[in-house]
Design a protein around this nucleic acid. Structure first.
Lengths: 192, 192
DNA sequence: GCAGAAACCGACCGATCGTGCGATTACTAA
DNA sequence: TTAGTAATCGCACGATCGGTCGGTTTCTGC
């Protein structure tokens, strides 16, 4: 692994941090060159096009999400504990306490949900993967009688995703500092 | 009211339809000029700057939301019927069946939630107004014993907002055509 | 230490960005 | 009909956009 790989990693991380607030469409080689100290043309040694850059940024975001949200929860016992950890880690991720200053997926999804291609496909995969993780933890919790709710695990995952999205709006737009309580009440409502 | 006002209305509507998919940052006077038949400089007779245009677009979106989602529900009896209508109309709005090809607010919020100014303030006001409408309908439904859930009305509003957001992701990104059922199951879970 | 590859840069391209200005057309009130 | 105003246009500006190309530096394997 040459030094170019390290540079590329650094560039992608910088771009991802920028994209959290400006979105993938807001990325530009010019500003990214300034932010990283590289020249604009130097960036093209690593990314053949803007879409290639966007793809790398999305993949990095997914990797960070798995490392900072999913993986730690997997260390909990399967079932309710794991479901709680997944949800709680997700709230931290949204609040900017895990690896990134905020959750980039919502804006990525909005930008690309009507624009077919690799970026959109990656977003679909990660969303399905996330819901499957929630659903499977919920399913085990049901079998162990750790939660009362008897709905389809996919339904529980759907509602947990929703509660986290509402939390994100409350947190980022309304800047409500007490909204984590609402998100936790919602969690109990969903599993009971 | 001269003919300029009509032109302005037409331009704002065109811009709003474009912004549903591209966001407010994706708007440009060039493409907007082509789409409306006006010249680029002619647009500046109506909007003094890009931010001015964005503000007009957001205000139009809010007006459309009120006219197509809130107002029809207000014709229902206060209480559970009204709450159901608000929620159901919201789902239709998200699915592009009411006045616009989709819901623009999520992408607007993501773009402007860390960028203070008139646009952000308008988005905050409309979000609070919407949650208040949900909460007050829920509160009446509680008093009339039409719903079992005894949580704070604000909590119920929070969860309904979340369910609608999950519905939007399922509908637009995953293109799940059966997700309305999930959204309705979530509704019952929230009010019971 | 030397050759070749990998990494990076400066300069440039056509297009488009947001915006200002002066002229021109279309309407309206007297 | 005419004067005045509202609406719109053509043109141009500096900046930035995504992207290309040829050259220079830096590293690596032999």
């Amino acid at each position: 692994m040459g030094k170019g790989s390290l540079t590329k990693i650094h560039v992608v991380e910088t771009a991802l941090n920028e994209a959290v607030s400006s979105g993938l469409g807001g990325l530009s080689f010019g500003t990214l060159a300034n932010a990283t100290g590289l020249s604009k043309s130097g960036l093209f040694a690593h990314f053949s096009s803007k879409e290639d850059l966007q793809k790398a940024v999305v993949e990095k975001a997914i990797a960070l999400f798995i490392a900072n949200v999913v993986a730690p929860a997997r260390r909990q016992k399967a079932g309710r504990d794991q479901l709680t950890a997944l949800y709680s880690n997700h709230l931290d991720w949204i609040a900017g306490k895990r690896g990134l200053p905020g959750c980039p997926f919502v804006i990525f999804v909005q930008e690309f949900d009507d624009h077919n291609g690799d970026v959109r496909n990656a977003l679909i995969m990660s969303q399905k993967l996330w819901r499957r993780a929630l659903a499977s933890a919920a399913s085990v919790a049901q079998q162990n009688q750790q939660i009362n709710r008897q709905a389809h695990p996919g339904q529980i995952a759907f509602e947990l995703v929703g509660a986290a999205l509402a939390f994100q709006v409350s947190h980022n737009l309304l800047r409500d500092r007490n909204t984590r309580d609402q998100a936790l009440v919602a969690f109990n409502q969903i599993i009971n």
